[in-house]
Amino acid sequence: MIRTQKVKLYPNSHMRKALLDLCDYRRYCWNQALETWNNMYDAYCLNKTANRKPSKLRVRDELVANKSDWQYGLSSRTLQLAITDLGVAWDDFFNEALTDWGKPKFKSKRAPRQGFKTDRAKLVKGKLRLDKPHGVANWYDIRFNKHVDLDGVLKTVSIYCENGIFWACLNFEVIIEPKCQTNQLTAVDVNVGHFNYTDGLIMVIPKRLNRLYEQIKYYQRKLAHKRVVNGKKATHTINYRTMRAKLQRAYRKATNIQHDLMQKFTTKLVTDFDTIVIEDLAVKKMQMTHVASKGLHRSMFGYFRQLLTYKCDWYGKRLVLAKQSYPSTQRCSQCGYVKQGLEKITLRGNTLHGTRHDQYDCYQCGAKLNRDSNAVANLLVLAN
């Protein structure tokens, strides 16, 4: 299995410039390769008998043959991996079932995140050592902020710069042992702000996270006011940059809190249970309602499913996905009655009968149930 650990890098002034040069070189290679690929594909579409279909090898050979002198002072793996990623992007372009389906685009130097990849990096005495290009005299190891917990073979290292800070994603090939079998079943009903399962409830938007979002709202309002008053000149002032740094730090804290909470919760699920049932939700369509789009985004439904999917694969656990048409919320877990039409429970409850959104009143057997507990019970049926 491939596991990833993210670390913060602290390069010296010399290596900082070298990393920025590699980021620019990755963007240059991607744009050159994409232009070459587009030209080859257009020629192939015009005359398929006279021209061959573009591929990673053909594009790579074309770029390597036309290398400039300055390119030999930079890592060759940056060019190779950029073309490899472009080949994957082109393969995805022909698969319309993907969520982010679309034609590969050119990279912009104005993008807030710039990065590159290498597969020849090493960990030496607790520091990261990148592959040294030919003809470079000074080359230093880069220290990072924490100890690497993973023990395995270091594969690809992705390094990117965002807001002047360098980060590295270390990909290790490790052997993962399956967790012990517990013969227990559970189901998770995801809601805005909290997740319900058989052992209780977990808050995915705790109070400390709400306080951070209030700070983010305050910083955004201040920055918008500065732009309105001072126009384009506002972005060049010290006060604006200071406020923007505070906003970015608050966003980073909020993301770390959410990711840490999701990682711990999914690890607890695959440790305590052998079979886990969740809903196959159309998250993007749900966000289009604008009723709770911000809460849906902050509850991280998609990230929760992504983590749970690969952890179940790692540890030999079974993940069951309930179909989008499965009425887990509208079905009575005691008698099986399914609400339809005007009787359905919505985010605002039921206006016809005047019930709340967190209450399930069965009109056939008269049972009064908690909406979330009833949904968990209905999902648990699919585990058998």
Rank of each mutant, 00 (worst) to 15 (best):
R129Y: 11
G354R: 04
I216D: 01
A50R: 14
L261T: 13
F116K: 05
Y44A: 04
A50D: 13
G126S: 05
K125Q: 14
R318P: 00
G115W: 04
A33G: 15
L185P: 00
C169A: 14
G152W: 04
R331K: 14
K146T: 11
A367H: 02
Y41H: 08
V157A: 00
N374P: 00
S293D: 13
R16A: 06
Y251K: 12
C180Y: 06
G126V: 02
C161Y: 07
Q258R: 15
A234V: 11
D119R: 10
K132P: 03
D119P: 03
Q334W: 07
A50I: 09
T84C: 11
D92W: 06
F166G: 05
K132T: 04
Q306Y: 13
I176P: 00
G102W: 04
R143Q: 13
E177Q: 10
I83P: 01
R249D: 14
M300Q: 15
I175V: 13
F144T: 08
K217D: 14
I216V: 10
P206T: 10
L185W: 03
Y140R: 09
T275M: 02
D21T: 02
T266D: 02
L307K: 09
D272G: 01
F94M: 04
T289V: 13
D85V: 03
H357F: 14
V270E: 01
N138P: 00
Q32K: 15
R371G: 00
A322V: 09
G295A: 13
D313S: 12
Q114Y: 04
R241V: 09
W90C: 05
A224P: 03
G126D: 05
W70S: 08
V174P: 04
A82L: 11
L247M: 15
V291H: 15
D274Y: 06
K311A: 02
A377G: 02
T118F: 02
L382S: 05
K179V: 06
F301E: 02
K125D: 14
Q258D: 08
G152M: 02
V291M: 14
D151Q: 13
T329L: 01
Q263H: 15
N378V: 06
I142R: 02
D313G: 15
L20W: 07
L380H: 06
R113K: 14
T118A: 05
V174D: 07
C312Q: 00
H134E: 07
G200V: 10
C362V: 09
D358P: 02
H147C: 06
G336A: 07
K155F: 06
Y337P: 04
Y315T: 01
S293T: 14
L86S: 04
M288N: 15
L319E: 04
N384A: 12
K233C: 11
